[in-house]
Design a protein around this nucleic acid. Structure first.
Length: 437
RNA sequence: UGGCAGAUAGCUUAAUUGGUAGAGCGUCUGAUUGUUAAUCAGAAGCGUGUCGGUUCGAGUCCGACUCUGCCAGCCA
């Protein structure tokens, strides 16, 4: 018999097909059963008339528990009463594996319970939709960069020392008595590959041992980091707006059904088109000051600091598109940031703040080119010089202006989906105090 | 790491002033030929996170601990 997937049913109306999947839910009405079958591509309601199947099949189906594995055969029929538009009139079925007392019932559950059952929660409609959107975000990221002339050159996950020296690193034993650290950014390695290949990116897991307990943080997350040789802050901002608008368009094109499941306000995604507003740090601070004077912000923001979550939310709330804030004070940015020649206290850095309070989805900028400047910075930041000798070589041998950024896949996905917390945008989130399952 | 909130049945939760811990869902049995988190009838079963204190009596009050959630800092 003709095995098909549920998302292909529209091509098989009137045909006899076999579906292989799991029981999502079962309702009964006397001589009639309505098993809902899911197979990873979708959910379809099947209809079993008692007299249409053998007594053995009827009895097997009647008492079947949620998430039992089964195959069903029957005729595909378009039906307005069915949620997906199609139904299958079952003529035969086989129970592959019975399931009893599936923990996640069709009722409400708390976050802790669901996270403890993450391995099963993934089967739920909403989680399925979110992770399908993630898949499309990842594909869009790769397609965009690949067709734009970028070469994928992944950075190592084991690193000998801090890339930025600021955030906390996960330390692991690395043979004998050596220590290695899990990467917190591929940034420095990207600068090496950019000098070899021109336009490059790395895309992999990133680890931050920050004890953050917010809806925007994971200890293990995926980051894509493009880097371009002979590029400036302006180039990187142009790239960021083309990049994000491409991702949003792909999500809308390919994941319409999923966005419906998530009840996403698609008009928010439709608004993500170039150009994005560009806001100088000074002007952003001015906005915050005015907001404070009007009583919209509790405390007066001090020039020179980095924005806190409430500041970011306020700034982004004034725009219906992502905002690109640039020229931050150098003091709050990484040591490798290039300086504004006119105002050396400012870094040529840029953060993209997503609308709706999703915060910083992209952080990047132009890198410093001068060997002497970087040597000073490394000293000032108290970083071990010997760990950066190879990095400084990049300034000794043909140093050119170059720029890039990093985007967090989970933050981007949460934004696309319009969901509260990044923990639902990765199959198995790693967080402070959560390492299982 | 700090602030706040919380932990009662497999799950979601109720419990007045300190006085017999109750329900819905799930499970089991039965009814129902169009259900949409189906409904209806019946049944079983099981619970106050851990340790200590106050009290005639603690889910409730006090202390410590463990765990969880939310917010903040840090960042993507």
């Amino acid at each position: 018999m003709n095995q098909v997937y549920i998302n292909q049913l529209s091509e098989h109306v009137g045909e006899e097909v076999t579906l292989k999947g799991w029981l999502y839910n079962l309702r009964s009405s006397g001589k009639l059963l309505f098993p809902q079958l899911r197979d990873g591509t979708g959910i379809v309601q099947c209809v079993v008339f008692k007299k249409a199947v053998s007594p053995e099949v009827w009895d097997a189906l009647k008492g079947l528990g949620q998430e039992s594995a089964l195959t069903v055969s029957g005729t595909v029929r378009a039906d307005e009463r069915a949620p997906g538009g199609f139904e299958v009139d079952v003529t035969n079925a086989e129970v592959v594996a019975q399931a009893h007392d599936y923990p996640i019932t069709p009722k409400e559950h708390g976050t802790e319970f669901l996270m403890d059952h993450r391995h099963l929660w993934l089967r739920s409609r909403r989680q399925h939709a979110i992770l399908k959107v993630r898949h499309t975000v990842v594909r869009a990221v790769r397609d965009f960069l690949d067709t734009d002339g970028f070469t994928l050159l992944d950075a190592p996950i084991f690193t000998p020392a801090a890339c930025e020296g600021t955030t906390t690193l996960f330390e692991v034993d690395y043979f004998d008595d050596a220590k290695a650290y899990l990467t917190q950014s591929g940034q420095l390695y990207n600068e090496a590959t950019a000098a070899a290949f021109g336009k490059v990116y790395c895309f992999g897991p990133t680890f931050r041992a920050e004890k953050s307990k917010t809806r925007r943080h994971l200890t293990e997350f995926w980051m894509v980091e493009p880097e371009m040789a002979y590029a400036t802050l302006d180039d990187v901002m142009s790239l960021a707006e083309r990049f994000l608008s491409y991702i949003a368009r792909r999500v809308m094109e390919e994941r319409g059904e999923e966005l419906k499941v998530l009840e996403r306000d698609v008009s928010k995604l439709e608004a993500i088109v170039p150009p994005f507003p560009r806001l100088h740090y000074d002007d952003a601070v001015k906005m915050l000051h005015e907001a404070h004077e009007r009583g919209e912000m509790e405390t007066r923001f001090e020039w020179g600091g980095d924005f806190g979550a409430p500041d970011e939310t306020y700034i982004s709330s004034k725009f219906d598109k992502p905002v690109m804030v640039h020229h931050y004070p150098a003091a709050v940015k990484a040591f490798y940031m290039a300086r504004d020649p006119e105002r050396p206290e400012l870094a040529l850095g840029c953060d993209v703040l997503a609308p709706e309070g999703y915060g910083e989805v992209i952080g990047g900028g132009e890198r410093a080119t001068s060997l002497e400047f970087l040597q000073e910075q490394i000293k000032e930041h108290g970083l071990p010089e010997e760990a950066f000798d190879w990095y400084l070589d990049l300034r000794r041998y043909g140093s050119v202006p170059h720029a890039g950024f990093g985007m967090g896949i989970e933050r981007c996905t949460a934004w696309m989906c319009g969901i509260e917390h990044v923990r639902e945008t990765i199959p198995f989130p790693r967080m402070l105090y959560r390492l299982k399952p």
